[in-house]
Write a protein that binds this DNA or RNA. Sequence first.
DNA 1: GGCTCAAACTTGGTAAAACAACCTGTCGGC
DNA 2: GCCGACAGGTTGTTTTACCAAGTTTGAGCC
Lengths: 243, 243
Amino acid sequence: MSLESVPPKYAQLVQTLQRRIEAGDYPPGTLLPSENQLIQEFGVSRPTVVAALRVLREQGWIESQQGKGRFVRGRPALALAEQPRPGHAYLTNPESGSAGEVLEAGALAVPNRVAALLDLPAKSRAFLRRRLVVRDGEPSEIVSFWLPLELSEGTDLTSADALPDSIRDHLQARKGVRFDHIVEQITARIPSADEAKRLGMPKNTPVLDVYAAVRDASGHPFVVVNVLLPADRHELEDAYPIG
Amino acid sequence: MSLESVPPKYAQLVQTLQRRIEAGDYPPGTLLPSENQLIQEFGVSRPTVVAALRVLREQGWIESQQGKGRFVRGRPALALAEQPRPGHAYLTNPESGSAGEVLEAGALAVPNRVAALLDLPAKSRAFLRRRLVVRDGEPSEIVSFWLPLELSEGTDLTSADALPDSIRDHLQARKGVRFDHIVEQITARIPSADEAKRLGMPKNTPVLDVYAAVRDASGHPFVVVNVLLPADRHELEDAYPIG
DNA sequence: GGCTCAAACTTGGTAAAACAACCTGTCGGC
DNA sequence: GCCGACAGGTTGTTTTACCAAGTTTGAGCC
């Protein structure tokens, strides 16, 4: 085993400076201590100080001006809020982290829309794993994973139990694929009678229908995640900076 | 005067390597030459090589693995594409760029949801500008801008004609506010009879209801944009990288 | 007083060196 | 054959050193 790995010095410096900015020790608009002052105070070399300040600049905490110094901007508004995109969580969270029930797990003909997202010919077969997620004792959403048959071989995706690791880790470990980005489509529709029954929702309220195609760096799709959310109980929220 | 300032060496290296990756000299999935090889080939020092490779890694061109090397990923698909996010386009595009008709423009009591997004007390009044956008001769979507009364003074937002500049430029020029980020909420519902009529859509198909709160760097909201999109004619699409 | 200019600060970039951590082979011994 | 030790490769981190370029300041001259 390993002893608690200590973070590198420059990362510690980043943390320290972030805390001081948040605490108001370095108010926004003011000048940060110069490189030499930081070298003195923390007893590290200049490259270490510069590395820390570079990280802070790239994250938007400070801005620098040659010849003058580095100005405090404050905590970057979205640095942390920037995460929970709709389709993303279902890929990275293990199924066992949420209650639920596996509805289907096996190969069958893909809907046209999924075929297009997976770059498969229409009417071809693919593997489907569909799960009803339960939150607070109530049915909450239906999550479906579609993947090409060759990708599903050798995985535990046919299991009727919740998977202990995330779909992403599962595929990455067993098939060696590398996820790169997600293309997400959001639409709304009236649920089918079956969907409404499973979700325990009135038939005349719409569902949000989210398709997330997971692709590698070259744009080749691996998996399509579909999430069905009753619109009376769920919203999608997202935040992003604008230039 | 100065001669054309030459870019720093590490930046030149970044460019060279990017071009080689794009040209296929370093195909995705393969190993990049090691630091020592690059030092040899380009006749620069190790910190210079490392600085260039750090930039490439942060931009998503390569990924590195201690003890093994650096793997080529390819051009980062989304780094520059930075899609038009749903609420964003309506802020930056001038109204005159799309056909349409101003439905309302004036002060009135805000709905609870908008009040919350604008940090206003419930039942207070705010300025509303609502417009029906027409595409290809068909009514397409309803766009509403809500803003606090003090922000609407001195603007042309009461005009019944399409504004020649974007809402963003308009407010930035006249009120000196600086937009920083957007918090977006997406939901779906059945349209009201009036909405369905204006949008020329069947009453039993849902609409996507997008709320985008535009805020400054400190999180204070300026404007709320609401877009109503018939779900049978519109989808929201978005792409983002995953770590 | 007002101007010029040099000195002293600031950040930006490059070079050379060393050690640590990690991976992958090869070469033993078993 | 199997397994461990080891050597040699890789990237990660830190240090020392020097030069370049932009900004501010103040001393000194007119």
